[in-house]
Amino acid sequence: MSQADDARVDEFYERLKEQVEEAGYHLNSDVEFTKALLESILVNEDRYGYGACPCRLASGIKEEDLDIICPCYYRDPDLEEYDACYCGLYVSGDILSGKKQLTAIPERRPAPDERIVRSEDETETLGLESISNLPLPVWRCGVCGYLCAREGPPEICPICKVSKERFERFI
């Protein structure tokens, strides 16, 4: 890794650490491991145009990989069940404090043949009929679950800071 890359990873690490701690999440305290993951996310950003999870095979088609752009849609359920995300970048308070040990965890993402890439039309029909007469649609952030009722999703999630395309229509 060149010095320029080192600086880019360091800057990414400092910025992300501050941001996630503020939101109540924790990065893995093994700094070498964590920086290696962040370097790989930057590699994926350069390679695919989006920061896909380093431990998953990205397709190169963003629409198919919205679920695995870091932070992925599986982070929160994995933190809940296994105290860490799939690649080990995010860990629970118990792992951070040393009460639990970090281990590799099973893959939660559905197999390629079982994945559903939702089209706009399908998203429309997800709402419950009984409340379809709400004055505004409700949008859900796929990463953190933030809900908001407005014409369209916000540019940036005010809670976890991911971009608009990670939102789906909820109601």
């Binding site: 290696a36 993951l37 790989s40 590699v43 380093p54 431990c55 998953r56 690649c87």
Partner: peptide, 10 residues
């Protein structure tokens, strides 16, 4: 393996 994956590296 994946070249970017730390678990693969381990």
């Amino acid at each position: 393996a994946l070249s970017t994956c730390q678990w693969c590296r381990k």
